[in-house]
Design a protein around this nucleic acid. Structure first.
Length: 414
RNA sequence: GUGGCUGUAGCUCAGUUGGUUAGAGCGCCUGGUUGUGGUCUAGGAGGUCGCGGGUUCGAGACCCGUCAGCCACCCCA
């Protein structure tokens, strides 16, 4: 590191970029609260075991993408790569089992050691929701409908497509997996190198391969529907019926495979063509086995996570903040009065920008640059009369205003 | 982890087959205007040419390495 620079794949959020993130979180939160979800904030690092156990030891995230380190006490800790595991851990260790259903939302930074590209950073931000303790398909429907409402609130729902799939229950999943291994093993010499690897680690992934040769093989592969239990099929039918009922459009995509091992039944992604290769903007599913896997009581759950950076790339520029009024103090007495007035006027609800140094010219120039609505000139001439000069920066008109009337006069600008 | 493209001023970029003191626009600062912004105008500041090594009489340019950015693969939000 020859030069002071940010760590690869990390990014500073400045001004409008930071504003865009806040706007997305704010909009998502408003919708989530209307659905009866409450905020929840868990630590950004956990014992490594929390993620190893839940995400599946074969997943790429665990095997090569986690920021793991030993702390001074010798414990292995990991910066969270996603949000659900921490929530599940808090659910178990925090005694929340008696408050079912638990409906919560969260947002914050996540960390994954991947090669950066468009829509992908090593530190990125997610907004997510979890609904824990409800095994009915209406929970899946509600959580998906909320996602659609949030995208709509952000004005980008029409640019996305909801893709829906089911992974079935544990039994369906296991039988199908075995069938796939049988099928692909017989033709493994025709598979791409990557898919040969997938065959061992995660055969479902082969279904999602972009390799042309793989795709030809996938076309004749066993289909999941033939291996689904009646219960799993009924559940999926109920979810689809529910989405139809609430009016959320979707397309079936049998090749959607969630990357994290804890998913079962419903899996879904909101995708877009607008962001290049990383088109998934919000994704989630049902994870009925997760909490039990972690050592808690058997408790169902469903939720999703959304990439705030990806959403930000799709939303328009955030609405500009309120136009300010600048206070330009001239001379010692004027500067002191400007300082005093700045606080008084802010208390009155006005957006005040104080000019810290320089004369009137510099003050007005700065006022212009920040797109202020008006400038208040406070100098010896004015103070002698107990007044100030208010200049409308759009029209150029000026008015003498008594200091006692200033608050009322300026309120016309906001 | 693999591959392709790219690193020159605060920003966007130009820089000829390697040649003397590295440029432009925007932005910034100062003056024209001793208390009046935007427009105009005159001037000014600002550069380890990402970093390290090599080739050469001579490197911003060519070669190697490295770091970073972008894009794609992988994977994922």
């Amino acid at each position: 590191m020859a030069k002071l620079q940010s760590v690869r794949g990390t990014h500073d959020l400045i001004g409008d970029d930071a504003r865009a993130h806040l706007a997305i979180v704010g909009a998502a939160r408003d919708v989530a609260e209307r659905y009866g979800f409450s905020p929840m904030d868990t630590p950004i690092f956990e014992f490594t075991e929390v993620f190893k156990r839940t995400l599946g030891v074969t997943s790429d995230i665990v095997t090569k993408e986690m920021y793991t380190f030993d702390d001074k006490g010798g414990d292995s800790l990991t910066l969270r790569p996603e949000g659900t595991a921490g929530i599940a851990r808090a659910f178990i260790s925090g005694g929340l089992q008696n408050e079912l259903p638990l409906k919560c939302f969260y947002h914050g930074p996540m960390f994954r050691h991947e090669r950066p590209q468009k829509g992908r950073q090593r530190q990125f931000h997610q907004f997510g929701v979890e609904l824990i303790g409800v095994s009915e398909p209406s929970a899946d429907v509600e959580v998906i409908a909320m996602a659609a409402d949030i995208l709509d609130a952000l004005g980008i729902l029409s640019e996305t497509k909801l893709e829906l799939n089911t992974l079935g229950d544990a039994q369906s999943k296991e039988q199908y997996r075995a069938a796939l291994v049988d099928y692909f093993s017989a033709v493994s010499d025709q598979l791409s190198e990557e898919s040969k690897d997938r065959l061992v680690r995660n055969p479902l992934r082969i279904l999602d391969s972009k390799d042309a040769g793989d795709r030809a093989l996938v076309a004749d592969a066993p289909i999941f529907a033939d291996y689904m239990t009646d219960d799993a099929a009924a559940f999926f039918a109920a979810v689809q019926d529910g989405l139809d009922t609430v009016g959320v459009a979707y397309t079936r995509n049998p090749h959607i495979v969630r990357g994290l091992d804890y998913y079962s039944h419903t899996a879904f992604e909101f995708t877009t063509e607008a962001l290049g290769a990383q088109g998934t903007v919000l994704a989630g599913g049902r994870y009925d086995g997760l909490i039990e896997t972690m050592g808690g009581p058997r408790t169902p759950g469903v939720g999703w996570g959304a990439g705030i950076e990806r959403l930000a790339m799709m939303t328009k520029a955030p609405s500009a903040p309120a136009r300010a009024i600048t206070l330009v103090g001239l001379g010692d007495a004027g500067e002191r009065e400007a300082l005093r007035l700045s606080r008084e006027l802010r208390h009155a609800g006005l957006t005040i920008e104080l000019i810290y140094k320089g004369g009137i010219k510099r003050g007005l120039k700065r006022a212009d640059r920040i797109n202020a609505a008006a400038a208040v000139l406070i100098g010896d001439d004015e103070l002698a009369k107990g007044a100030v000069t208010v200049r409308n920066l759009d029209s150029g008109e000026q008015a003498d205003v008594a200091i006692s009337d200033l608050k009322d006069h300026l309120s016309a600008y906001s």
